[in-house]
Design a protein around this nucleic acid. Structure first.
Length: 429
RNA sequence: GGAGGCAUAUCGAAGCGGUCAUAACGAGGCUGUCUUGAAAACAGUUUGGUUCUGAAAGCCCACGGGGGUUCGAAUCCCUCUGCCUCCGCCA
């Protein structure tokens, strides 16, 4: 959500930005919202004047009553009453206009960073850099569920009976590997100075509507029946929620947090649940990082954030690449975004394992996340978030890349302390 | 889950339908005077807002959130949320 004052003063910049994102159908909204905003402010002014008058007269009534001038007081009451209808009408108009303006402002995309490549959709995203050799071994890499099954590590049949499609039982070494990756990722981020945090796994509707649109909510969030609570789709929801409506002391910025949570997603829409395996599922776990910082620091933090994920995957011997999101594929709230993709030797291509985003002040504006700047003025902060690691999807990359010809799986050194010192997992089947 | 109480600025706290509520009174922060420096004392200053303005001054809105009653609400009513005390239950 951009600043309406910025839009008022720089409509051309906003239009240009819309074009860059190939959302030309939104172009008329710019003039529309300018007109509505003008009307809103005019009606606000009028209502304010009426209120000022009402306050003045009402105050005088008090004085008249004090002096026992009851007749004059009655006259004044009538005067105010006569204006009440007009004020009520104006207030209704004000609320209506305000809602319209807000609705449009929500759909006007954030101004993208000048470095964002221009492109229509995800096919035009740009590979930035590869880390590690994308090796294709000379033996066949089975589908990830098959690898897991060799370790008696997964039971999807039972999961379907118990919870339905899109859930899983992880078992034995695979389950341990899952926990190990999360624990390792947690410590990895703590070592890099982030504060570990376990947030609420359910949030109120007020927070949900703050962090996403209705359409997104409908497609993602599970609602708890009879309660005003939703299961989180990512800990970013609770972590950003932590700062809603807050003025953060400047000294405590940047806030650099790494949070663990299970994530619940309906995955309604485009892709849906994949029948086979744990790539797209209703429930997974994620170690996340979020940063709330001053505007001038957000670009530097952005680079540090995705680098963390790259480094983590490299310590687990998984080749990755960074893929920059092009203008058309960039979500409306984002200034810039880079996906971290892991190499799949089975598919001989990279696939998404994490997403790093700089939201500029757009999220902060929507949620009123501010800090007190040097000049004493409350100033909108910048917010960023990135995936550290999200198993079990991440396990797909792990198993495929660390698989040996004999079916065993190497445990990279970094992970061994979390796997009881094992250097290798040997299939049981 | 049951019964009762509470929610006011950075913190504590008064106000309980108008007539010094931006909000008393304490404390803290900042600025200044005094001091070699500090403390103390004294004086001033210290909430926020997609409001208005070239700027200043001023207007409007906000006393946990939302709604209502009233000419007028921090104050009365409804509702939601949070906190405290007691009882019950429980990892």
């Amino acid at each position: 959500m951009i600043d309406i004052r910025f839009l008022r003063e720089n409509p051309d910049v906003v239009r240009e930005n819309i074009k860059k994102k190939f959302q030309d159908s939104k172009l008329p909204l710019v003039d529309e919202v300018i007109a509505l905003d003008e009307e809103l402010r005019a009606s606000k002014k009028k209502a304010d004047d009426l209120r000022a008058n009402r306050n003045k007269v009402s105050k005088s009534i008090g004085a008249l009553m004090g002096q026992k001038k009851f007749e004059e007081a009655e006259e004044a009451k009538k005067l105010v009453s006569r204006q009440a209808d007009e004020l009520a009408a104006l207030e209704a108009k004000e609320a209506e206009l305000n809602e319209k303006v807000q609705k449009i402002m929500m759909t006007i995309p954030n101004i993208i960073d000048p470095t964002v490549p221009i492109g229509k959709d995800d096919s035009e995203n740009v590979e930035v850099e590869r880390y590690g050799e994308p090796v294709v071994p000379d033996f066949e890499i089975p589908y990830h569920t098959e690898i897991m099954e060799r370790f008696n590590g997964i039971d999807l049949d039972s999961a379907r009976r118990v919870a339905g499609n899109g859930f899983y039982y992880l078992m034995g070494d695979i389950a341990r590997l899952h926990s190990a990756v999360i624990s390792y990722a947690r410590d990895f981020m703590i070592d890099r100075g982030f504060t570990y945090c376990v947030p609420p796994f359910m949030i109120r509707s007020g927070v949900v509507t703050g962090v996403m649109s209705f359409a997104e909510m409908d497609a993602m969030m599970y609602k708890i029946e009879g309660e005003d609570l939703y299961l989180i789709g990512t800990s970013e929801h609770s972590m950003i929620g932590k700062f809603i409506d807050q003025i953060i002391p400047e000294a405590s910025l940047p806030q650099t947090l790494t949070s663990y949570s299970p994530c619940f997603r309906k995955e309604k829409g485009a892709h849906g649940i994949e029948e086979r395996g744990v790539y797209r599922i209703h429930q997974f776990e994620k170690q996340e990082m979020i940063v709330v910082c001053k505007p001038e620091d957000s670009a530097a933090w952005f680079d540090k954030l995705w680098q963390n994920t790259v480094d983590l995957f490299r310590t687990l011997d998984i080749p990755v690449r960074t893929l920059e999101c092009c203008s058309g594929d960039l979500a409306d709230l984002k200034v810039k975004s880079i996906d971290v993709e892991a190499w799949s030797p089975r598919q001989k291509k990279y696939f998404e394992v994490g997403s790093c985003s700089n939201l500029g002040d757009a999220q902060a504006r929507r949620l009123k996340i501010r800090y007190k700047a040097q000049d004493g003025k409350p100033t909108l902060a910048h917010t960023l978030n990135n995936t550290v690691v999200a198993p079990p999807r991440m396990l797909i990359a792990f198993l495929e890349n660390n698989l040996n010809d004999d079916g065993s799986v190497n445990i990279p050194e970094a992970l061994r302390p979390y796997m009881g010192g094992k250097e290798k997992l040997v299939p049981t089947v």
